[in-house]
Every structure is written in C-alpha cells, then in structure tokens.
Design a protein around this nucleic acid. Structure first.
Length: 365
DNA sequence: AAGTTAGACAACCGCTCGAAC
DNA sequence: CGTTCGAGCGGTTGTCTAACT
C-alpha cells in the first residue's frame, strides 16, 4: 500500500500564483500562523495543494525575505558554503538571512554553476578523467534535454540521436563571467583556440602564489591546463562537476568524517582521525567506499601511488581498488604525476588542501 | 519580422525523517 | 512497535522572456 498523496490533485489549481491567491494566503497565515499546511487551503479557501501553499509562503510571501539582487558578498558566501556543504541548500540558506533554499539553488544553477563551468581546460586530460567527464555531462543536460524534446516534436517523435552540440558563443555581457572567453573562436565554429600564453595558467599561477604554494609545486600542476588535442578531447568535453564534487569532498572532509563517526558507520574505527590513515566506510552494498580525499591518501597501513604514464596515456595505480574518482583527484593534485605516501600525515594534507583551496578560489574568482 | 534557443525563475514531485497516534 | 501524517529537502520540470538566427 502506497502512501496517501498529500492532497487530491483533482480540481486544484496549479502553476503560477495570482496576486489574489497571494493575498488570501498572506492574510490567512498572518492571522493563523504557519503550519497545518494540509488543511490550510480548505480553511483559507484556496484551490491549491498544501505543499504549494507552504512553498509559496516560504519562498515568496514571508515578510522577512530579501528578494533578488544577490550581492557579491552573498555570492561569495554561497560559493564558499557550497564548497563545504555541497547541495544542502537549506543549510546554505540558513547562513544567508532573508534568502531561501530555492532562491539559492536557482541562483547556483543559473549563475554560479555556469560561471564555474565556463572554465574549460582542454589539454592533458588523463583518459580516465575524460571518461568520467563524458559520463556525466551534467552541465548541458538540461539544454540537451530541451533541444532533444524540441527536435522530437519537430520530427514527429523520433528520438534525436545526435552528438551534443556545444554551447554558442557567449554574449558580450556574459563573457565577463567567463575566464575562457578569450579562447572562444568568433567564426561560429566553436573551436577553442588557446592563446600563446594562456590566461588560465596565468591566473592559476597568481592564485596559487597568493595562497603561498611554492612555485615548484605549481609548475607541476600547470601542465593540466595546456592543450593536447591528440588526446581526442573535444571542446567542452571537460565539465567540472566531477572535479568540483571531489573538491567539495575535500573541503568538507572534516564534517564528513565527523558525520561518519557519529553515525557509527566508520569501519576504520581504530584508525579514524589519526593522521595518514584511511577513513573508509562500508556502503549500502557492503563494499568499501571512500568518503573523499582522506581515503585516497592512504589506506590503513598502505602507501598509495599514482602515476600517469605519458607514453601510452594510461593510468596505473598502486592499488587497484582506487577508481576513477581517485584518478580525478590525483590528476588535479599533481598534474601528470602523483606519487607518495601519507605517513607524514596532516602537514601533507594541509599542503594539498591549500593547493586545492587556491584552485577553488581561482575557479570561483 | 518570425521562429528558435537558452537563461532565469517559479513551481512541482518524490523522497526522507521525525512526531504523533 | 508499526503506521500515518506533516513538514522539509533536493532534484526536476514548466513557464516566461530576452537574445539570437
């Protein structure tokens, strides 16, 4: 027996709220307080689902809301909070008085996500990373879906099975958002033509230097951002969702560890929290799974090693259990080569975290 | 000028969780 | 202790509109 629906949909109004409906809802809630959303529509005389009323009140009618005009400061907060909290919009909204989770979520999806993804390194991308990137394609999923739907409608229902078209050249005002705007070919071919000296690399270098990372280490990273079409990468292949997820995992590592510890799921109970040791958990299927950077760094008692082989463009790992996500991380951390162990513990973690934070702030600048 | 596309925002849906029964 | 319900959350879809072709 399934759960009863929150309300009968039949006969209820949907879609945009009218000023009259807003007025009725506002007056009712002001008179009777929030809550009892299920019964509210009937009592207030609204032909709306209770959930819809709640959403409308919380997101638009409450008197303490600040609508629109997200300031630069708020934007920065959203970015930082998202980096540490992930898609927990309500938590993020809790740090921004007058803002709602829905507003922040929309703002992220329509502004910040695009801003971050406009960064488009096109060069030495290890195959595993490229595959992971191709696998997701989340950045353009919506646009593609729309386009596909339109094509189907046009073609009378035939599914469009064509390659994903690349985004069009940004408009001038939007180019300001894109650090790669200067790379965009203007002949409408959408080919990416890197300048002699990539502004990407310059900006990355600046940010990393500002964060105090030694230049020698930075040099080890920058090959990531140069061009190598022989890799078979196409313009737009790299969306940063995966990378950002990985970064999020790192930034939010402490919280994650705490949560795992609290929930008692941590299978490394004897090891957790001690420097250099792994922090693996058992997933729902009973398999080992990682919870972010910590796990990559080492498994209990083992060193780890990654090495990107430039000759055949294949990756080999010191531990076959490491998967694609870890490849992504090691690629980000150390460019073409990642080798080492974590016995030096927190200082090593700090160094790498610093590098990542620098990269994050660059991505979000 | 008309059709098309994509961005931005609003709203909905399905799921989870905790409290009440 | 199991079930039901309300509330909340995050993902997804719908709608409007400006920009583009």
């Amino acid at each position: 027996m399934g759960r009863a629906p929150c309300c009968e949909k039949v006969g209820l109004k949907r879609g945009r709220w009218t000023a009259e409906e807003d007025d009725i809802l506002r007056k009712y809630v002001e008179a009777n307080g929030e809550g009892s959303w299920r019964s509210l529509p009937k009592n207030a005389g609204l032909l709306r689902c209770g959930k819809s009323c709640r959403l409308r009140w919380i997101n638009y009618l409450r008197s303490d809301l600040r609508r629109g005009n997200i300031s630069a400061q708020e934007e920065e907060m959203i970015i930082n909070l998202h980096a540490s909290l992930g898609n927990r919009w309500s938590l993020i909204a809790g740090h921004l008085p007058g803002r709602t989770d829905n507003e922040i979520k929309n703002y992220w999806n329509s502004h910040l996500s695009r801003k971050i993804h406009s960064f488009r390194p096109t060069q030495f991308i290890p195959p595993a990373v490229a595959a992971a990137v191709r696998r997701t394609g989340r950045r353009t999923a919506r646009s593609v879906a729309k386009k596909t739907k339109n094509s189907e409608l046009k073609a009378g229902g035939g599914a469009a099975n064509t390659p994903v078209p690349m985004p069009t050249t940004p408009t001038p005002d939007k180019e300001a958002l894109s650090s790669t705007a200067g790379w965009q070919d203007k002949d409408n071919s959408n080919n990416v033509i890197p300048p002699e000296s990539s502004p990407l690399e310059e900006r990355l270098m600046e940010s990393l230097c500002a964060a105090g990372t030694e230049e020698r280490e930075i040099r080890n990273m920058t090959p990531v951002f140069s061009m190598n079409e022989e890799m078979g990468m196409e313009d737009g292949d790299l969306c940063l969702d995966d990378i950002m997820e990985d970064l999020n995992g790192i930034v939010g590592l402490d919280e994650e560890r705490e949560r795992e510890s609290e929930s008692g799921r941590n299978a490394d109970s004897g090891e957790k929290g001690s420097s250099g040791n792994g922090n693996r958990v058992v997933d729902d299927r009973g398999s080992w799974t990682s919870i972010g950077e910590w796990n990559l760094m080492s498994s209990p008692g083992n060193s780890w090693e990654w090495d990107w082989n430039h000759d055949d463009h294949t990756a080999r790992g010191g531990n076959e259990e490491w998967g694609q996500e870890e490849n992504t991380l090691s690629w980000l951390w150390d460019g073409d080569t990642a080798t080492g162990d974590c016995t030096d513990g927190d200082s090593e973690m700090d160094r790498r975290r610093e590098k990542h934070n620098a990269m994050l702030s660059w991505l979000m600048s």
